[in-house]
């Protein structure tokens, strides 16, 4: 199902965080976002810096490159999703990458990204992913091995009345959800990030 092409959204109040170790790509994404009307765009050069940025910047959408050093995009996503001290485990993440192999896409999906944006990028392709996030908000799922957006991409309506037909399905608000026990979900603490950074 494609996003509704007729919807033109005002992105002025959306906080974006760009995470990319390539300054040219950061500049390009930032320029596109500004051209699309965004006022609040922060940048980080790697995953660890981005994680620190999230502590004081309430990002609504993160646009993250896959290939970064020393902490790559997937490690960063896992840290945001399951890190014990993550400031925002539910933030939508767009993974930006030159890898377009299915195995890579699946890998990104299984790490907890919302959208996958293949390079080369354009204003149209970037906006398309942003629009998908706006139009298809997703519940999160916590299982023994995964925490992230529902990979079935089912559309939900938070604002409407509860419309679940499946009585077996338990949906809770984020505040009621129990925190991850860690381990199997690839939980990383800040200390583990430092360990990764230092090889």
């Amino acid at each position: 199902m494609d996003a509704d092409p007729k919807k033109s959204y005002n992105l002025e109040r959306i906080n974006f965080l760009i995470v990319d170790d390539n300054k040219h790509m950061r500049a390009l994404v930032k320029t596109i976002l500004h051209a699309l009307g965004s006022k609040s765009v922060h940048e980080a050069a790697d995953g660890a810096e981005a994680f620190k940025e999230l502590r004081h910047f309430p990002a609504d959408i993160i646009i993250c490159d896959w290939n970064m050093q020393p902490l790559d995009g997937l490690d960063f996503v896992k840290l945001v999703r399951t890190g014990s001290d993550s400031p925002n485990p539910y933030v939508p993440i767009i993974m930006l990458t030159g890898h377009t192999e299915m195995t890579k896409v699946m890998e990104a999906r299984d790490s907890g990204v919302h959208e996958f944006l293949a390079k080369p990028i354009s204003a149209k392709s970037l906006y398309s992913r942003i629009r998908s996030i706006i139009e298809r908000p997703r519940e999160f799922v916590r299982t023994k091995t995964y925490f992230g957006p529902d990979r079935r991409r089912q559309q939900i309506d938070y604002r409407g009345p509860e419309r679940r037909k499946n009585a077996q399905k338990k949906v809770v608000d984020a505040a009621e959800a129990e925190p991850s026990e860690g381990g199997e979900g690839g939980e990383l603490s800040q200390a583990e990030v430092e360990a990764l950074m230092n090889g």
């Binding site: 959408i61 999160f140 023994k144 399905k169 949906v171 959800a177």
Partner: peptide, 10 residues
């Protein structure tokens, strides 16, 4: 698993 409504709606 448990389905969770994110705390914010963009």
């Amino acid at each position: 698993g448990v389905f969770i409504r994110p705390p914010t709606d963009i």
